[in-house]
Amino acid sequence: MTERYDGVSFEDRMATVQFSVADTAHIVVDGDKCQGCTTKACVSVCPAKLFVPLSSGGVLFNYEQCFECGSCYVVCNEAGAISWSYPEGGKGVVLRHG
């Protein structure tokens, strides 16, 4: 579902940001650990909305449009559920108006 406000969909919002996507993911989520998580804080804080809760209790994520802010692993309350590092050199977000 496309959520809109202000005439700009979230997809259009993210389309304003340039990414040079790496082949390998710099975020790894251990889905088993997410099963027991009741807060799913990563879902609400990630400014790029990369984490989506699943009805099975887990979390679906993608790394491609990541701002590399680190908020997800910082708020994660299940130790070790989110492994996060920087993407390989030259890859990832490229901000022009930061």
């Binding site: 304003t16 940001v17 400014p47 701002f67 802010c69 908020s71 910082v74 901000l95 108006h97 930061g98």
Partner: peptide, 23 residues
């Protein structure tokens, strides 16, 4: 925030050129 009466007149009608975030 953009909808607040003290801010809305300042940002009305702008074209979004980049959305970004940082910790």
């Amino acid at each position: 925030l953009k909808a607040h009466p003290a801010i809305e007149p300042l940002v009305r009608g702008g074209e979004l050129v980049e959305y970004n975030a940082h910790m």
